[in-house]
């Protein structure tokens, strides 16, 4: 494991911790898209179907458990916890699941390494992760007051993706024959989706003003 990969994973973990901090201590999920959170839960469930029969390392195993547990608990909080649920911007979070899930499933059935259930689900999870942030970005754009934790959450998620790109570049040059087209293209698309957000996030940080995305 190289430093970019580790930094990427830690950034991913921090993004989840920031979100849990907001939900658990402030008891608020204002500005957070439940649709994106449910899509992430689906991403982890479909990607880690092999959690018990493919062992790569303790690190991978524990991280998989953490990602599964945290994503499911975030969904539980937003749906079932009374105070948290009250703060959910339901009317603004209108993105339709089927526009995301169905194309990803079809694409995974057509473009994959092997036409088996686990392999198609794993490929589906990559495509789904690439676009799962869309409901969250739409919600951000509609929210006039983006609070700091929400902004940081999305920023950390984007940073995690950027670090994974660097990890692949590093691996390409250090591991002979390291080529993963499906992972790379899905990852590149995912990172590009954050470009616009990054631009306004850095601008607001530089000018020391509250983050607001143009309509």
């Amino acid at each position: 494991m190289n430093v970019f990969r580790l930094a990427g994973d830690m950034t991913h973990l921090s993004s989840i911790l920031v979100l849990l901090l907001k939900i658990h201590t402030i008891k608020s999920c204002a500005g957070i898209s439940l649709k994106t959170q449910e899509l992430y839960a689906l991403v982890f469930i479909t990607r880690y179907l092999d959690i018990f029969d493919r062992f790569t390392s303790i690190y991978n195993f524990l991280m998989k458990l953490i990602f599964l547990g945290s994503s499911l608990s975030i969904v539980w909080y937003m749906r079932r916890h009374k105070a948290v649920h009250r703060s959910y911007d339901k009317d603004q979070d209108t993105f339709r699941y089927q526009f995301i899930v169905l194309p990803c499933l079809l694409l995974a059935l057509v473009i994959n390494h092997k036409l088996t259930f686990k392999e198609v689900m794993w490929t589906f999870s990559l495509y789904l992760e690439a676009v799962a942030i869309l409901p969250q970005l739409v919600l951000l754009q509609r929210t006039r007051n983006i609070d700091n934790l929400t902004g940081q959450y999305v920023f950390l998620l984007g940073a995690y993706r950027a670090l994974y790109l660097l990890n692949w570049v590093y691996r390409y040059f250090t591991e002979p024959g390291f080529v993963r087209w499906i992972t790379w293209i899905a990852g590149l698309v995912q990172t590009l989706l954050y470009a616009d957000f990054f631009y306004y996030y850095i601008l607001s940080w530089k000018n020391n003003v509250k983050l607001e995305l143009p309509a």
Binding site: R5, H12, T56, K64, F67, H113
Partner: peptide, 10 residues
Amino acid sequence: KQDSEAKDEL
């Protein structure tokens, strides 16, 4: 063999 090799990442 790409499919199995690809899964050492999260």
